[in-house]
Design a protein around this nucleic acid. Sequence first.
DNA 1: TTATTTCTACTGGTTTTTAGGTAATTTTGA
DNA 2: TCAAAATTACCTAAAAACCAGTAGAAATAA
Lengths: 211, 211
Amino acid sequence: MQKDKLLTAIVDDHPIVIEGLKNMLKNEANIEVIGGFQNGAEILSYLENEKVDLVLLDISLPDINGMELCLEIKKKYRSVIVLILSNRTERSIVVQTIQNGASGYLLKNSSLDELRRCITEAVKGSICYSKEVMEILSRPSRNELLAAPRLTKREKQILELIAQGKTSQTIGEELFLSPLTIDTHRKNLLQKFQVRNVAELIMSANQQHLL
Amino acid sequence: MQKDKLLTAIVDDHPIVIEGLKNMLKNEANIEVIGGFQNGAEILSYLENEKVDLVLLDISLPDINGMELCLEIKKKYRSVIVLILSNRTERSIVVQTIQNGASGYLLKNSSLDELRRCITEAVKGSICYSKEVMEILSRPSRNELLAAPRLTKREKQILELIAQGKTSQTIGEELFLSPLTIDTHRKNLLQKFQVRNVAELIMSANQQHLL
DNA sequence: TTATTTCTACTGGTTTTTAGGTAATTTTGA
DNA sequence: TCAAAATTACCTAAAAACCAGTAGAAATAA
């Protein structure tokens, strides 16, 4: 279809990943890897002077967030195709990158075939996700379903103290409250988290990043 | 020094990383990559029949924790050298892998030179860390001062069930054991973690990445 | 200012955990 | 094969947590 090869840049802070991609892509007839870049500044300065068709971009970079970088590249160089290659599986991140102009999103554990497929699709102008990413997008975002319970100030405070292994007695003394009051808060915490005891409570609170 | 090449296996769930490492190592005179494996089961079954000198091992694998896998490999095949290649920067994880017999720990963003250096060192029998990992190890680790306790299989199992909010009664039924036995394990867990109750236990286990 | 939420505290009763042991088996490693 | 570690199981007793309510006071938002 095209006479010229796709000039491709790889942006990833892991040299190993850069090597791997270079190696994989060097056998592709229509792709020429023009370089690997370990941070956002490098690729941006390269883009100022050189022509690039395709950027394979990691989300986690040392100097700038990959999502931001994507937006910046698309703003300045509309025609550059950006494909995200990342380990992050959060729905919100996938959605954000696409909104920022990326032409696709692949997890790093996707197969070589998937990568090839996505590059082809992206060049054609469509947006392409790897299989896992499709799943992430299609499911109604689990952790949004079981929303982290809204805790009051007191509850948060007492949750902390419970996590420190303190008894209702001790907590009561520490806060100048009746231990019976602490028991009530305890009960309310169990209810809000829909769990049966502190073991489950602490697990759940940890998973919800509330501790 | 050596006549034969080091038979090297790469274990990582990212095909791209496997490709990258293969590519990097194929120019090394004394290394022969005999395969890439995307999960723990694959490498373990390979090891049963084939000779391997060096395993480059990722911590996050789909089927088994890399730390556990390391321990398992070292238990069964003492002479196999295991080098950890991971993104995880938690001190406890680094320490744990070394306790489990790994000969070194590198972050994935370490340079090719560092990887080469560490392989050389590991073959010589010493333990080798990449620069960043050295820093992680040297800083005095706030809440991780006390090393992660070594848990037996049963204890790990029961810890899991406690974290799920189950009572000694329930756990006993589930494992066909007397609830009194579960109580004993419970007691031992509290002692090993040096905590007073399950709340603190679950917190500590979480911080130590044992859950 | 009213309505709602949050915080406080209680009653009374049940279940579970924790703390201090001991000790017989079974498994495992050297 | 022998010692150590792990697993199993028990006793007694106190402490703590959990369950299901009610209810007044204080703070906050509409």
